[in-house]
Write a protein that binds this DNA or RNA. Structure first.
Length: 804
DNA sequence: CTTCGCAAGCCA
DNA sequence: GGCTTGCGAAGA
């Protein structure tokens, strides 16, 4: 018996199954989908069994046995193994990457290097002895000094020390110590009698136990209750009054939260219609994709909830994907409220162990609904009735490193496997999805009204050029400043949005015009006033703020451009009474800080929530009556064909934060290009006309949805090398792809250097290219066998979410 | 002739 | 990807 194993080594020649002999003892339990430890080369690695077979072509002398079977129950289902193959072809990743992405990180291997003393007679050098500290085996850390490593190497050669790689699981199943009290009271009485009167505490414990004969109690609880020590308990147990048992438990991330159960809301006609279409297709076991296009606040969530209720009723499971779970606590809570303990929330704030526990609950079918970000699409359910992607247009559904999958594609693949519907929900669908819906590939459902018929907020677009002409050089237009003042007077809340963090976007010398740039990247450094430092937002480089110009030594250093920090200061100056909460990458670095800030704001502890795009999603507070967009232009002029689409989506989403409840909302958008169609259509909340206009542009320039796009980026430390291989790539593509396919480039990327690597890119635009995965696979092969050695890095992104 | 450093080759 | 091996260069 042999097992085909994909080993945990991401390298080109290893990206295929290796056959291992299955030892007798594992033959009845090993299955495809199990994890194994196998010898590979001269070390131990983790691997996944992908098939079991009785014969192999591998010559006997090369055959090696499976070292250890890590799972009695396979961790990967048959579905996941099939999905792996598809994922690999469509994202051009290593098979091992595709396998690992489906599992919680706790199930990935942790490799430890253990150094062992073999020859105890040898007098070890002082430095080595210090490392061992009387022990025989110690973990060898990677960051040991060079000299130490060379001595260790020598000693290994002389067989005095031995090095061994050990495969460990990252997180173990959490176990709790349970005390099993003896059930025979007579026996307890006997033990009680035999304890000497000196051991008073032991006597007390056993006396107490007589009242609880045969019961189980958590060890720590018992100790606390009897106010006694572990030593006493141990002594009592040795005398036979109780036994110890380890019980598996789940870490409960929501232990200290109370949840109020909510009833279902009644539906509007539109909601009802949408729901019944979904249910109709669900009943027929159709793998149909619905695009639920509903304006902000139109009650998409309620449709999801009731559709899920239906699936649960049939003992089926549901997956709900949200763009960024820590930003949508309100949405998550609604699921918790409706389905209680049947919901598992896969939260980025959970520890590895907590995530693993939630995963096991899903696998064992102890929960039926999963709410989570992108990776939750791989939830190990076996009987899925419904998959939902909320805010389907969001870029976070696309993973930006290998495997570069889009959660929407995985969701649709799984829906075909499980014969169940998928709902893509959004107020501002992506052009691709809307086009597919219009073509009939997806089925379009529309919600045009808010449940209690609240009006959409009034959006005013302020031309900042006019403000400048009239002598207002502030970042707040007169209208916005006036509106903020009014809200402060009325004690209503507002949200201010600016898509740039930090204080000033660049540091400029007024004498020679030098802009301080990052030494590693081709981008200007951003000034952060709180730490009085300048930072690169691409590589994280930080340094002191220069007092004099690095070029001309002038001291006329000035800060230009506006970031959230500067806005915060400006608010403090103009509205000294306003209480401001700032929410951006800098204030939310710690776990749980998103929730904390949102909670403070929800509790009315601040008047103004100021933030970057992370506040655009999901906020739903009744008291918000003003939304201000300080500069709508930042996303509009990006070198990306989706710039207009992203601007429109952002403005619409942000506007949707105002006036969701009884109070009327107002939105003020400041811009230097008020005439731009993305801004004009967003002003009128007009998705369809925007779509039509944008489609005209996409057609003219042959961009998606009219074509498909693949994006290839080449980087190297040397500009010439980068350019050379980018040209090689483009030429190779031109030779191997059909004439109707357009290859743009190579061109230098818009940020031409990041972390000291120059960047060039090629864009492939195609309508029909059935062999593209294979052609790109071949290109990857050339790259991995040849170019990689020269220090070239190439990445291929099929259907990229951004081309920058 | 030994030792060091690095590129090449292999892994069942 | 990580480990061994084999080769050439540097040093005694």
């Amino acid at each position: 018996m042999f097992a085909e194993v994909i080993v945990d080594v991401a390298a080109y020649p290893i990206d295929r199954p290796f056959d291992y002999a299955v030892p007798e003892k594992f033959q009845t339990i090993i299955e495809s989908g199990s994890r194994v430890k196998v010898p590979f080369g001269n070390r131990q690695v983790l691997g996944f069994v992908t098939a079991i077979k009785s014969e192999t072509d591998v010559p006997v002398e090369k055959q090696k046995p499976v070292g250890e079977l890590l799972d009695i129950e396979p961790v990967l289902t048959q579905e996941m193994l099939e999905m792996t193959k598809w994922l690999r072809r469509h994202t051009l990743c290593y098979e091992i990457d595709a396998l690992q992405v489906m599992l919680p990180s706790a199930l990935r291997a942790k490799y430890e290097k253990i150094l062992e003393i073999v020859d105890h007679n040898f007098e070890l050098p002082q430095s080595i002895q210090a490392m061992f500290q009387q022990k025989d085996r110690v973990e060898l850390k990677v960051d040991e000094s060079k000299e130490l490593l060379t001595t260790i190497k020598k000693l290994i050669k002389e067989n005095i020390l031995a090095l061994e790689t050990v495969v460990k699981q990252k997180t173990a199943v959490k176990k709790v110590r349970m005390i099993l009290i003896e059930s025979d009271v007579k026996k307890l009485q006997e033990i009680h009698l035999n304890i000497s009167n000196q051991a008073k505490k032991q006597k007390d414990v056993v006396k107490w136990m007589m009242n609880y004969a045969g019961t189980r109690i958590v060890s720590t609880d018992l100790l606390k209750r009897l106010n006694t020590s572990n030593a006493v308990l141990q002594a009592v147990m040795e005398k036979g009054a109780a036994t110890l048992e380890l019980e598996e438990v789940y870490r409960d991330p929501y232990a200290d939260r109370t949840i109020n159960v909510s009833a279902k809301h009644s539906l509007t006609n539109e909601q009802h219609l949408a729901l019944s279409e979904i249910i109709f297709s669900y009943d027929k076991h159709e793998a149909k994709t619905f695009l639920l296009h509903g304006i902000t606040g139109s009650g998409k969530t309620e449709v999801y909830l009731q559709a899920i209720e239906r699936a649960l009723h049939d003992q089926k499971e549901a997956i709900v994907l949200v763009p960024e779970i820590s930003l949508t606590p309100q949405m998550t809570n609604r699921f918790k409220e409706r389905f209680g303990s049947l919901v598992a929330v896969l939260h980025s704030g959970l520890s590895t162990g907590e995530k693993y526990d939630e995963w096991r609950k899903i696998k064992r079918g102890e929960v039926k609904v999963v709410v989570g970000a992108r990776s939750a699409v791989f939830a190990p359910f076996q009987n899925i009735g419904l998959i939902i992607l909320d805010e389907e247009h969001e870029g976070t559904y696309k993973q930006d490193d290998s495997p570069r999958y889009h959660a929407r594609d995985v969701a649709i693949w799984r829906s075909e496997y499980h014969h169940c519907p998928v709902i893509l929900g959004s107020a501002t669908p992506s052009l691709e999805s809307y086009a597919r819906a219009k073509k009939g590939n997806y089925s379009l459902l529309t919600l045009t009204k808010r449940p209690r018929d609240q009006a959409l907020p009034e959006v005013s677009v302020i031309d900042m050029r006019e403000q400048l002409k009239n002598g207002n050089r502030s970042m707040f237009s007169l209208e916005l400043a006036e509106s903020i003042r009014r809200r402060l007077d009325k004690q209503e809340q507002m949200v201010l949005f600016l898509n740039r963090r930090g204080h000033s976007s660049f540091v400029l010398c007024r004498d020679c015009g030098t802009v301080v740039e990052c030494p590693n990247c081709d981008i200007s450094m951003t000034y952060h006033r709180h730490q009085e430092r300048i930072k690169c937002h691409y590589c994280g480089e930080e340094s002191q703020v220069p007092n004099i110009c690095p070029e001309c030594k002038s001291d006329h250093i000035r800060f230009f451009g506006t970031g959230t920090q500067k806005v915060e200061e400006e608010i403090a100056r103009l509205f000294p009474t306003a209480r401001v909460l700032r929410m951006d990458v800098d204030t939310t670095r710690k776990k749980g800080s998103h929730e904390h800030i949102l909670k403070l704001f929800g509790d009315g502890k601040a008047d103004i929530l100021l933030g970057t795009q992370m506040i655009a999603k999901g906020l739903d507070f009744p008291n918000i009556t003003l939304v201000g967009v300080l500069s709508a232009d930042t996303t509009l002029h990006l070198a990306d064909f989706r710039a207009a689409e992203k601007t429109f989506q952002l403005l619409t989403q942000v506007s949707g934060r105002a006036g969701r409840h009884d109070k009327e909302g107002q939105v003020i958008v400041q811009t230097y290009t008020p005439e731009h169609y993305a801004i004009q259509f967003a002003k009128h909340h007009d998705f369809v006309p925007f779509y039509n206009q944008e489609m005209v542009n996409r057609k003219q320039f042959a961009y998606p949805p009219y074509t498909f796009v693949a994006f290839i980026q080449i980087t190297h430390e040397d500009v010439l090398m980068t350019a050379e291989y980018a040209h090689k790539t483009a030429n190779w593509l031109r030779e191997n792809l059909s004439n109707s396919t357009e290859i743009i480039g190579p061109t230098a990327s818009s940020i031409s250097r990041v972390q000291n690597r120059y960047r060039y890119q090629c864009l492939i635009k195609y309508k029909k290219e059935p062999t593209l995965p294979e052609v790109l696979q071949q290109l990857t092969r050339i790259y991995r066998t040849d170019w990689m050695k020269k220090g070239i890095l190439m990445s291929i992104d099929l259907n990229p979410s951004s081309i920058m």
